[in-house]
Design a protein around this nucleic acid. Structure first.
Length: 182
DNA sequence: TACTGGATTCACT
DNA sequence: GTGAATCCAGTAA
């Protein structure tokens, strides 16, 4: 049996938690997948963590909880809150489908497995995740397990926002490269 | 109360 | 490569 991730895992600094999420297995609503791309959000003007509001308060008050927000009128984005006594969250940007693929295909209306979860909005749709999941503890409705196999779908990728510099910086396979926001 | 913009996606050219 | 879709949260008045 895979080992479930403890809530205390998320109490660490966001920038430490984010890379360790790569390769872990997320399970919800009868489907599962391996995390291959994440983005860390700390107290940064480009993120919801910059200003405390009713929506973002969960990032200030909790760690190891689910934060889902709705974007562009069409998509949901899945975050896990981090850091004890400090604001932070990690956005799950892409996963590699592992089980329940037919269910994902049905939810997405798409056959190509590589395209099922290769984006934050896409994976939420494939996993059936929406705003109702916000506030639940990781391990409750959405479960997270330590994975072993190396991610292969899009390649492991970690992003960290830093609004005062360039919007996004990505590290891939040990090499730094920069991706400007559109 | 009304207005504005967004951590995206997808169809179309 | 470009632009529309679409609706919620935040902000201003």
């Amino acid at each position: 049996m895979p080992k479930a991730v403890a809530t205390e895992f998320f109490a660490e600094p966001t920038l430490d938690v984010a890379p360790r999420l790569i390769g872990m297995v997320i399970e919800a609503n009868g489907v599962s997948g391996r995390i291959v791309e994440v983005e860390a959000y700390t107290n940064d003007a480009a993120s919801h963590a910059f200003r405390r509001t009713a929506r973002s308060a969960i990032m200030f008050d909790t760690y190891g909880h689910v934060y889902v927000y709705f974007i562009y009128g069409t998509n949901y984005c899945l975050n896990f809150t981090t850091e004890c006594h400090h604001v932070g969250a990690v956005l799950i940007r892409a996963v590699e489908p592992l089980s329940g693929i037919s269910l994902m295909q049905e939810r997405r209306g798409l056959e190509n497995v590589r395209l099922l979860c290769n984006g934050p909005g896409k994976l939420c749709k494939a996993f059936g995740i929406d705003l109702a999941f916000t506030g639940s503890a990781v391990g409750d409705e959405i479960r997270l397990y330590h994975g072993r196999a190396k991610a292969i779908a899009t390649g492991p990728r970690i992003g960290i926002t830093k609004a005062m510099d360039l919007p996004w910086r990505f590290w891939e396979e040990g090499n730094l490269f920069v991706s400007r926001k559109r």
